[in-house]
């Protein structure tokens, strides 16, 4: 049971959150990007055994989407989120 640092509410239990998956830098909705660029950005990678920038939604708290950097092997949450 992770303790997730919500920037607003402080450290809270994992069961108050809903997982949003790894952060992905998706192409902007500018009508230009094609399927190939999108598929590479959206489908591939982002499965490190180590620090991962990811999104959590504080569904039972402040209802904010927060970004966390967590080591996927030790579950240690890295403050400040440098990777």
């Amino acid at each position: 049971m992770l303790l997730i640092p919500c920037p607003h509410c402080g450290l809270r239990e994992e069961s108050e959150f809903t997982y949003g998956g790894p952060c992905r830098d998706l192409p902007a909705l500018d009508g230009q990007s094609d399927a190939g660029t999108w598929s590479q950005a959206f489908h591939m990678g982002k499965n490190p055994r180590g620090p991962l920038r990811e999104l959590w939604y504080h569904s039972s708290g402040c209802e904010a989407w927060i970004e966390v950097t967590r080591d996927t092997a030790s579950h240690e949450i890295i403050p400040g989120g440098q990777t």
């Binding site: 509410c9 402080g10 809270r12 239990e13 069961s15 108050e16 039972s60 708290g61 402040c62």
Partner: peptide, 16 residues
Amino acid sequence: CATLFAPHIRQARCIR
């Protein structure tokens, strides 16, 4: 899930 007697909660007296 959250502790209601944590210092900052006891002081604020409100939580979701």
